[in-house]
């Protein structure tokens, strides 16, 4: 066990932190980095390509872990808008709640939110996987293109509006489905997908069979005037 590198944001600047983390190469073998006193600061640990373990020790501001490219980031607190936005690879885990637009446009990697996520969770998702232990707010997975959103709690209004090929799984209640989102059969392949994601998220105790599956009805894939109200 390597001793943790401690960076205290009451002393170091956000620029210091990010410059140091971004300088690590993909083959870095640096041990864990413990970031103290984040105090809601923005843009923490963004654009890190090294497979390094980073602990953000408290609530963080906007875009924590933004464009993460391989780091394993744990946020021990709540995360503000756009956590792990446009993530390319790696892991971001929020031990508390996440605000709106969590995992927005993320291309790869896994975002785990142990608490609840706000509105627009997984908006324009482009291939990443998101597992939310609690509930998600309205317009989640809006225009989500590919990837997976697993919600162990409830989903707010207009889930999956204008959905493309992302797959959505919800265990609790869905307040309403957005335009072009429909329930799909939950088969063995879907159960296996959910089980694998729950396992990676550390939530293997939850029964994958208890989720419902949602996807695109593909009615908006080609314009038709009778669907105009859905645009």
């Amino acid at each position: 066990m390597t001793a943790a590198t401690v960076i205290d944001l009451d002393v170091a600047t956000v620029r210091d932190l990010n410059a140091r983390l971004q300088a690590l190469g993909r083959d870095s073998n640096l041990g864990p980095v413990h970031v103290r006193h984040p105090r809601g600061r923005h843009a923490l640990a963004v654009g890190v390509s090294a497979p390094v373990d980073i602990l953000l020790d408290g609530p963080v501001g906007y875009y924590a872990g933004g464009m993460n490219d391989g780091a394993r980031i744990v946020i021990d607190g709540n995360a503000a808008t756009g956590v792990a936005e446009n993530m390319m690879a790696g892991l971001v885990r929020v031990r508390g709640d996440a605000s709106q637009s969590a995992g927005a446009t993320a291309h790869g990697g896994l975002l785990v939110i142990e608490g609840n996520a706000g509105a627009r969770c997984g908006i324009s998702l482009k291939g990443a996987d998101i597992v939310v232990g609690g509930s998600v707010g309205h317009m989640s997975a809006f225009m989500a293109q590919s990837g997976t959103l697993v919600v162990c709690g409830d989903a707010g209004e207009a889930l999956g509006d204008s959905l493309y090929e992302a797959r959505l799984f919800v265990r609790g209640a869905v307040r309403s489905l957005g335009a072009d989102c429909e329930e799909k059969p939950m088969g063995a392949a879907e159960r296996a997908l959910v089980a694998a994601l729950l396992d990676r998220a550390g939530m293997a105790a939850i029964d994958a069979a208890s989720f419902r599956c949602f996807g695109s009805a593909r009615r908006l894939y080609h314009f038709h005037v009778d669907n105009a109200q859905a645009y």
């Binding site: 956000v14 620029r15 990010n18 923005h42 843009a43 963004v46 654009g47 501001g61 906007y62 875009y63 933004g66 464009m67 808008t81 756009g82 936005e85 709106q100 637009s101 927005a104 446009t105 627009r120 908006i123 324009s124 809006f142 225009m143 204008s162 493309y164 593909r218 908006l220 894939y221 080609h222 314009f223 645009y231």
Partner: peptide
């Protein structure tokens, strides 16, 4: 398929949040 484009950014709205987005882009680069 028909590609629909959103009119607002997915993770910020308004100049006060844009300031934070710009900060992130600068930190990323």
């Amino acid at each position: 398929i028909d590609q629909r484009s959103a009119c607002r950014h997915p993770d910020w709205t308004g100049p006060d949040d844009l300031e934070i987005k710009i900060e992130e882009l600068r930190e990323l680069t």
